[in-house]
Amino acid sequence: MCKAHHHVVEEIDLDCVVQEEDIKHSEQLKASFRAAGVRAVGLLGSPGSGKTTLLETLVPRLMKKRRVAVIEGDLATDNDARRIQAAGAPAVELNTDGACHLDASMVEKAFAQLPEPKPELLLIENVGNLVCPVDFPVGEELRLAVISAAEGEDKPLKYPAAVLRTEGVIISKTDLAPYVHVDPHKMAAYVKTMNPRSRVFFSHFDATGQLAIEAADGGSNLEDWLIG
């Protein structure tokens, strides 16, 4: 059947990666960050997983060791940038007006808006979404997925790209685990089974109202790992 068909239609191989421009742009951005002595770290996770709360705690601690700035991504409002500024670091808010992820050109523009001197450690909080941001690197050296215990025990398994295509996972809100019938250790074990090289951390509010963050895998603490 194909003979006639072949005469009429010519098949041309293309093999073009559709996200190639985005990937290239991210690589260029990473190179220019490196050249400027900036280490970029990305945070991604569902809305309400605790990304900004984590940053509010981390920023003052990291500022003791490095010059820190934050880029916040949200569909709307500058609430998160204001929270980070209140925590002491310069922050720029990117409103995507509905877009499901940040991209490298948005981050490049936001970085230019950060005051001088530019940071040594740049934390980039992506739009709340456990799916799309994974596909769009924005010049980061490390990417971290934040998954809260309240989202359900099997979330690492249900969102494999978020575990396989990041360097670390923070299982947040472990203080809620008993109320939502979730075992955070099982979540950590899922992550390690899926991606043995991934770092895993737990976070929860302790009795004094402080966010406590601990390594769940016996490795270095989160701050040291982020600083690199």
């Binding site: 009429v8 041309i12 191989d13 293309l14 093999d15 990666v17 559709v18 295509r165």
Partner: peptide, 21 residues
């Protein structure tokens, strides 16, 4: 071994097109 690096399955790729002669 359980240690690996993903080499395929992350991208969307235009493989080929057919053009009517």
């Amino acid at each position: 071994s359980h240690v690996f690096r993903i080499t395929n399955g992350e991208a969307v790729t235009v493989k080929r097109m057919e053009i009517k002669k």
